[in-house]
Write a protein that binds this DNA or RNA. Structure first.
Lengths: 216, 216
DNA sequence: CTTGACATACTCACCGGTTCGTACATTTTG
DNA sequence: CAAAATGTACGAACCGGTGAGTATGTCAAG
């Protein structure tokens, strides 16, 4: 009965909240939790600092909201990779490339995770949502490895988690440590040539590892 | 004049400076640059805040001094690895293990590097000393790879820098992302069993990569 | 349809603790 | 005594957070 139709309204809380989250993501990714300034966020927003507190309550709560939204975004990515049709080795190459490209494409997320680690992941631990992250990628990987072993392509059967870590570490590091690594070795890690070379390498390395029998 | 009887002051500038640097390293590693508090450092020190400014001038300068001292420490580590006597594959295993153990043993250094990356490595770039870091590890690695290829043990000749990155990334990530990774997968990455498993894996992975011919 | 009560969305000005940094006095060393 | 080293107390800006009131939209009663 009650026609709760979506009429055009001047008050637009959803957009306001989303606006705040967008700006806050940038700010916290750029400056960390303690380095991020609420006033700075407020300024870059369509609204005021008071609104940030109205909707999020505190700086930390805002930070947590930012973190949760960021993790929500990658969760969806991990979900729909249809790799079961491909042969194990090809599937693994796709998985590695996807991880690599994702990290390259989302430096803000990488930085937020770094920030969270500096903070000992305390906010993450407090968040049901993130703690219960569906770690479907482990199952996917485990399936690929099992298939590869059965098909005889893979000669080794490590923990899926360890392989995931091998892949993640490289892809993550390339982005997270871009600045220090780049400074020491006088490199620009965002250069396309280097990027594709590294993308190739991490896939080759993971595959070589799996295809080499245990006794080396 | 003053009734200050028993405690006669003893000037010890070197020890004072070192004391400040020790405490500051902990503080900045734990809380970042913006999160680190000068007053907190002063309190944990034998001396006062006044002394921090007397010797280091500013919070940022103190941070830079901390960073430089930390890098100086690892530089010495990289320098004296005598691996030329060992066969290429064994030498590489030693190199990987050394890197792994170093990162595990110096979480504060890892955190400082993370912090510096959040800061886009601006302090590092300003520091002649760090910028001119002798990256001898690259030469060491390059030598090992060349020998391995000549001996026929290695079937592939990648850039030493890329291999260094593959090794570094894994060892670094294990420490830097200990908290988030541990939270998501409900693991304690500092557990000895996991540690040695991972130590084994990264060495195996790097060797597998080098020993597998290019065409996969 | 009008009105007015009520809830949600939003504005403005401001506070008080925190925190980097310093002025100034004092002591130690050479 | 001069210079280096140190202690004490405080200033001033910064910054997270809030009090109090205003606008906007909803809905039901008249």
């Amino acid at each position: 009965m009650s026609a709760r139709s979506a009429s055009t309204r001047k008050n637009d809380p959803e957009r306001t909240k989303a606006d705040i989250l967008d700006v806050a993501t940038e700010e916290f990714a750029a400056n960390g939790l303690t380095g991020g300034r609420v006033d700075a966020i407020a300024e870059k927003t369509r609204t005021s600092k008071r609104m940030i507190y109205y909707y999020f309550g505190s700086k930390e709560a805002l930070y947590l909201a930012v973190l949760e939204r960021s993790y929500r975004a990658i969760r969806s990515l991990e979900a729909d990779l249809k790799l079961s049709d491909l042969p194990a080795d090809e599937a693994l190459r796709v998985l590695v490339s996807t991880t690599f490209d994702h990290d390259e494409a989302h430096p803000d997320f990488i930085r937020l995770v770094s920030v969270e680690n500096i903070n000992n992941a305390v906010h993450m631990q407090r968040s049901e949502e993130i703690r219960d992250l569906n770690v479907s990628i482990i199952n996917t990987l485990d399936d690929i490895i099992a298939r590869g072993v059965k098909e005889g392509v893979f000669q080794r059967r490590p923990e899926a988690l360890d392989v995931h870590m091998l892949i993640s570490a490289f892809c993550f590091f390339r982005v997270s440590n871009r600045h220090t690594f780049g400074t020491i070795f006088r490199l620009d890690l965002s250069e396309p040539a280097l990027m594709s070379r590294h993308r190739q390498m991490i896939a080759d390395a993971v595959l070589s590892y799996l295809m080499t029998p245990e006794g080396k």
